[in-house]
Each structure stands twice: as structure tokens, then as C-alpha cells.
Design a binder for these strands. Structure first.
Lengths: 225, 225
DNA sequence: CCGTCATTCAATGGAGTAATTGAATGACGG
DNA sequence: CCGTCATTCAATTACTCCATTGAATGACGG
């Protein structure tokens, strides 16, 4: 096995990328970095992990060509190396969703994903927005909203949903989105809004996928993740 | 970390799939299984590995929902669980190709992939075949050809290229394909054919991708992998 | 019912990976 | 030029993964 032919050498490289995706913390890191460029300590705070641990996982991701690092004064800002990372993540997720019974169990148990929770597709949302038929809310924290959000969406972090919905028109449909397909926040937002008598649905995925599809994104301030 | 919220539980599942793709032998197994259903010992022979080792890797792939096993008399035949596995493989490969300098180095060093080696796309080949402008050769071993091949292709295993090309019309373009995008056999076939004065190109990828795209495939005998 | 054979299981040792700790680096601000 | 602070490195321990070996399972053919 130590003398490798070119085919094995290539497979070793592909395996490096796959292994880098093979740890839950690193997948969570990718989801956060996909929202916009982030420093090590910001990511460590989001994940509730020691800085050194996050730093090492980030370097593993960088060695695999999944994220890139750029020094910005005292900080090192990590961002996704390539939009193809999102499709690799999505493809791996697709296999798990289709084939692993455990995924189904978790989704049914915690996300309570019934048929009436069927999400809005990107394309559908685009049409609804063009026709002015929906209010789009971004339920991520304000800092992530600032790094980039769906054009026309308003930021209503999860904790403010209740207060916000008191002033929202009943009857008008609300579409909520957050970080990605299985990000809990939009599920919670929809559940809360429905319990308060609103008509609400989720976007099928989150901001990174919207942006990767080339759809309009707005940024607050100077950062262009 | 032992008490996991649903998000972490899902990421753990996705990581299981990614980790299963994170070993060169398993990637090679996937490439072979993508050619058609195979027994453990057949795969062990193709990879030159002990049967027990291959069996354990296959079980790792099965636990991750990547392959499925089906008993067939004395044999257990493994096949891909889902076409989504091919796209996950392709997505991981895409990240590696775009981001890892080592991949580029290997490709340039061993595959000698120059611009004039630019492959034929599936769509292009379809049109060329419809217009009768090319001879399509499948350079995989006969057993893999039998499990399924591009409709209209003829089987010319790598060792028989020279003899076959002596009888082939000079001037008519030849398109060679094998197992997948970086399978060495079609590269070698094209190099050999060109050195003998023929006009030859590679298909951009292999039989599994052709089949997954829903394009016509022929099977010899009774197996329908 | 028994031998054969494909496959899987169990157990071992060795290699790599993960989390934690504390120290080292390197850029900014005064 | 020096203190501060974000990040990385180094070193430790625990854990998981990998390849190998030999034995066990389970289906077929007589």
C-alpha cells in the first residue's frame, strides 16, 4: 500500500476531503462559515467550544481545501474556499437523508416534520416575493443577517418572533429561513407563528444556498463574505 | 458532547456518510460497484486485497447507506444504494479537483492531461453517435462491459487496443470511456491510439454517470446491476 | 446430512484522530 | 518598543479506525 499508483494517489486526495467532512463539529463549522467570513473566536463562541479546538478543526478543513483563511489585522477570517463545498455538503446530506433510517427518526422526533410543513422552494419564493404576496423573515441572529441576507427579507431573530408577530398582519403568509435545510431556527419560528394563528412556511434551505444559486443578497455594512 | 441536540444528532449522521467516503479503498470499491452488482470476492480480486478486509469495508459502506447487500445463493452481491451516491462522490471529487494542488500535480504528472486531451461531454457524444460520426469503445474488462455499457459501444479491453486498432479505419474519430472521470484506462487507450495515428478522445466520465443520467445502456446476459 | 466455499465475525496490534492544557507566535495600539 | 490579544503550536491522554489472522456462519451440491 505504500507504493501508490496514480489512481490510488487520487483516491487518497478525495478521501482527505471526505474525511474532513466526517466530523459533526466540522460540519457545523462549515454551516456557520457559509453564512459569511468569520474569525476563530467568533466561531468558537457560536459553537460553544474552546478556541484551540476550533482552530485545529479549521486547519483540518483548510488542509482539505474546504475553507480558506485570510488575515485581517489581529483576526484570521475563515470563509468557504468554493461554492462547490456547499454542493458536496448537500450531496452527503442527500445520501444520509435517503438512506439512513436514523436521520428519518431524528427528523420525525425533533423537527416534527409533517406533510403540512412542506417547505417553499427557492423558485417558488422568488415568484411569491415578486408578486408581493409574502413577508420574508430571516430568523438568524443579527450578526449573521448583517453578513448577508435574502434581498427584501427582514431580520427577526428567534427570540423576537413573538413580539414581532403581534404587529404582523394576520392572513398574510410568512416565509422563514435561517442557515440551511436542517437549521432548527426556521422550524421553531414556523411552529411559533402557527401557534399564534399566522400562516407560515419554511424556505427549503438557507441563505448560503440562496446566495450560491446567484439570487439577490444584501449586505449590511462593509463586509462582503 | 454526550447530550446531543437534534442538530448535532443530524450532523453526526451526515458525518457517518462522509467518513465512509473517507478512505481510498472504499472509494475504489464504490467505483467498482458502480459498474454493476458485485460479490465480495470479485471486488477483492479487482482491488488485490484480502477478502476479509474488503468485507469489512463493504460493511462500513453499508452502515453508511452507501451500498446495499443482497444474498444471491452462496454469494452476497453489493450494489450502490442510490444514484445519489454517485453525485456525492462527484461533489467530493469536485472540491478536491478545485482546491487541492496535489490533485493537479498528480493529474499533470501521471495522466499527462494536456489541453488537447479535453474530453468529450456526454451530450456531445450523444450527438456524435446519433450522426454516426464516431466509434465508441469501452476499454474496461469484459466482465464489467457485460454488466452494462453505453448502447452502441464495442468492448476493447486495454490489452487488445493495439490489435484492434490495426483493423480500425484511420481518420474516423474514436471515443474511449471506462469506469469514471479519473479512471486511467481511457487515458491509456487514447494515448495508445494517438501514438498509432488515430484520432481519439475520452468521454468526460464513465459508464455509471452515463447510466445515472438516464442515457441508453445495454446489458449482456441476465444480470441487471 | 456432510463437505465445500463465500462471507462474516472476533481479536490483535499498530496508526491515526480528538479534546485539553499551556506555551509560543505575530500583529496591532499606544 | 512593549503590552495586549487573537491565533496557532506542542504535548498529553483517550479513543477510534485499519489490516491481519484464524475461526464461525450459512447456503449450496451431492
Amino acid at each position: 500500500m505504500s507504493i501508490r499508483n496514480p489512481k490510488q494517489a487520487l483516491y487518497e486526495q478525495f478521501a482527505i476531503v471526505a474525511r474532513a467532512l466526517g466530523h459533526p463539529l466540522r460540519l457545523e463549522l462549515i454551516e456557520h462559515i457559509a453564512q459569511g467570513a468569520r474569525s476563530v473566536e467568533a466561531l468558537a463562541a457560536k459553537l460553544g467550544q474552546p478556541v484551540a479546538n476550533i482552530s485545529q478543526h479549521l486547519q483540518a478543513l483548510r488542509r482539505a481545501g474546504i475553507v480558506s483563511a485570510e488575515r485581517d489585522g489581529k483576526f484570521v477570517r475563515y470563509s468557504l474556499a468554493d461554492a462547490s463545498v456547499l454542493s458536496a455538503f448537500a450531496a452527503v446530506r442527500g445520501v444520509a437523508e435517503r438512506q439512513l433510517a436514523e436521520v428519518d427518526r431524528i427528523v420525525r422526533g425533533y423537527f416534527d416534520a409533517r406533510d403540512d410543513m412542506r417547505p417553499v422552494t427557492r423558485h417558488e419564493l422568488q415568484r411569491l416575493m415578486r408578486d408581493g404576496l409574502v413577508t420574508v423573515i430571516d430568523v438568524r441572529p443579527a450578526d449573521e443577517f448583517a453578513l448577508g441576507h435574502v434581498s427584501g427579507a427582514i431580520n427577526v431573530p428567534l427570540g423576537e418572533i413573538k413580539a414581532w408577530s403581534a404587529d404582523a398582519a394576520v392572513g398574510r403568509e410568512i416565509v422563514a429561513y435561517c442557515r440551511g435545510p436542517w437549521c432548527v431556527m426556521s422550524f421553531e419560528a414556523v411552529a411559533t407563528l402557527r401557534s399564534l394563528g399566522h400562516s407560515a412556511r419554511r424556505l427549503e434551505d438557507g441563505m448560503p444556498e440562496w446566495k450560491a444559486a446567484g439570487l439577490p443578497v444584501e449586505v449590511v455594512g462593509r463586509y462582503c463574505g
